[in-house]
Amino acid sequence: MNTYDIEDLYTGQTEQFETEISSEMFDAFRAFTCDTNPLHCDEDYAKNRGFKGRVAYGMLTASFLSTLAGVFLPGERSIIQSVDVRFPRPVYEGDILLVRGTVTEIHESVRQITVAVEIKNQRDESVLKGKMKVGVRNG
C-alpha cells in the first residue's frame, strides 16, 4: 500500500493495477447489494437482449476506484470525496480490467487531489471514464 502525503504527489502522477472479473465477484456483489436484476444474474436473459453474457454491475466495476484511491493513489491517507464516472461499454465475466488513475489537480490548502480515472478491458477498450476527488488525510 502506498503512503503518499500531499507534498509527495505531482500532476501527471499515474498509478495502475489489473484485476479479472470473476463469477464470484458477481455473486458477492449481488449478495450484499440485493441487486437481482436479471441482466447481471441470468445469462440467457442478457444474451437474448444483445449482450455477450451477464453484464457486470457498473458499481462493481466502479468499486475498483476504491482500491485505486485507498491502496495506490494516494494510498493509506486516502478519503474519497466525490466520484463522477460514465460507463461507455459493458463488462463481462472473465474480462481483465486495467484500472488507472492520473493526478490532474492538487489543492494543497485543502489537501485534495483530482484524479482522472479510466478502466480499460483486455481489448484496450474503455469501460469506465471519469474523475474522482480524493482527500489526503493529515496523518
Binding site: 470525496q81 489543492h107 490548502s109 476527488k133 482527500g135
Partner: peptide
C-alpha cells in the same frame, strides 16, 4: 466537504 470544493473551485 463543500468548503473544500469551494476552495478548490476558486483556486
Amino acid at each position: 466537504l463543500m468548503n473544500i470544493n469551494l476552495i478548490a473551485a476558486m483556486e
